[in-house]
């Protein structure tokens, strides 16, 4: 079951809120590979947001390789299937983030600790959901 909360008072724009929640539910294992996402019109209608807002979230998810549009116009979760291209993409994104952190004066151990912390919270959430 996909659960989405949109807070229209939040500083975060609705398209970003939708994007983040879909990504977090994939990373938590609530949505798994080959799951079909609801049509963008349904999402927009039920959440009372503009249709283009949801399209923007879906487009972002497609650009990041999290979902893809099938021939019969369904959005399918593809995260988890990582090919060479997505590995390279992830590598370069991480590289940017890590160089940024190093430039700010973070130590190597600190960076590794942060990454470990992120991964452990994620697996804790996953257990909680089962």
């Amino acid at each position: 079951m996909l659960t989405i909360t949109v807070d229209h008072n939040s500083k975060e724009p609705p398209y970003k809120q939708i994007y983040d929640q879909i990504v977090s539910q994939i990373s938590a294992g609530i949505l798994v590979m080959d799951d079909v996402l609801p049509p963008s019109r349904t999402l927009a209608g039920v959440l009372d947001v503009n249709f283009h807002t949801v399209n923007r979230s879906y487009q972002m998810l497609r650009d990041n390789g999290v979902i893809s549009l099938t021939r019969n116009r369904k959005y399918v979760v593809t995260a988890g299937r990582h090919d060479e291209r997505s590995v390279n993409e992830f590598f370069s994104r991480e590289q940017d983030l890590i160089s940024d952190a190093l430039a700010r004066g973070f130590g190597e151990d600190e960076i590794i600790d942060i990454i470990k912390k992120i991964l452990t919270t994620r697996s804790k959430n996953k257990r909680g959901d089962c």
Partner: peptide, 10 residues
């Protein structure tokens, strides 16, 4: 508040 929470059946 201006919150909407929905459950989507896949």
């Amino acid at each position: 508040s201006q919150t909407v929470t929905a459950q989507f059946v896949t």
